[in-house]
Amino acid sequence: MIQQVSDFELELMKAIWANDGAALYAQIVEVLESKGTPATKNTIISLLSRLIEKGFLRISKIGHRNKYTALVSEAEYKAAQTETFLEKIYEGNVKDLIATLIQKDLISADEYEQVKKHWREDQGKE
């Protein structure tokens, strides 16, 4: 099972995923700064090390620089966290989740129709 990461660790992963799944330290910092999420070098390096320990990243050397490569894709992480959320909050009941999205106007009628269309198309592939 893919474990959850802290909010800032997730921002680091997003920066790496945005770079086709591999980035140098400078590229990660550039993405963070462009989002208005600055942090000290020590914090970033420490959290990148933690992500390596958790199995989310691999590090390799390019000259004197470190290249961080994602071992968990964005899609894999989203799917795992969605499943965890669904089980934890809705006890696996997708219908209740969708009802909440509709009742709280968190999904528009058009988005709902797109989801239904997507589901029907996926069913047709089987």
Rank of each mutant, 00 (worst) to 15 (best):
A15K: 01
A99Q: 10
L47N: 08
F85E: 04
K41P: 08
A39Y: 04
S46F: 15
S73W: 11
G36F: 03
K41C: 11
A80C: 05
Q3E: 13
Y77G: 00
D20T: 12
I107D: 00
K104G: 01
K95T: 08
I102Y: 03
V29M: 05
A109F: 13
Y77M: 02
G92R: 08
A39C: 10
S73R: 15
K54E: 04
S49D: 04
D7E: 15
M13Y: 02
E30K: 00
A75H: 13
S108R: 09
S34L: 06
W119A: 14
I98S: 00
E113P: 03
Y68K: 02
P38I: 14
D96L: 10
Y68Q: 02
I98D: 00
K88C: 09
D20L: 06
E121H: 08
L101V: 06
L106S: 02
R58D: 14
R120I: 15
A23S: 07
N93A: 09
L97Y: 04
E87G: 07
G21W: 07
L71K: 10
A18E: 15
A109G: 14
W119D: 11
T37W: 05
E76L: 06
I52H: 03
I59K: 01
Q4I: 11
M1F: 05
I89A: 10
M1D: 09
A39H: 10
T84V: 02
T40L: 14
K88D: 13
K67N: 09
F56T: 04
R65I: 04
K117I: 07
A18T: 11
R65F: 10
N93P: 03
F8K: 09
Y90A: 03
N42V: 15
Q81F: 03
K104F: 13
N66D: 07
T37P: 03
I44S: 01
Q3W: 12
K104L: 13
S60Y: 07
L10N: 11
G55V: 09
W119S: 08
E30H: 02
S60A: 14
N42H: 07
S108D: 05
V29K: 04
A75M: 04
N93C: 09
I89F: 07
E87A: 07
N93W: 04
E111V: 14
N66K: 09
D122H: 11
F56E: 00
L51A: 02
T69I: 11
Q27C: 03
E83K: 13
T84E: 02
E111P: 05
V72Y: 05
L71I: 11
V5E: 06
L51F: 06
A75V: 02
Q123M: 15
T84H: 04
K67Q: 12
S108F: 08
S46A: 14
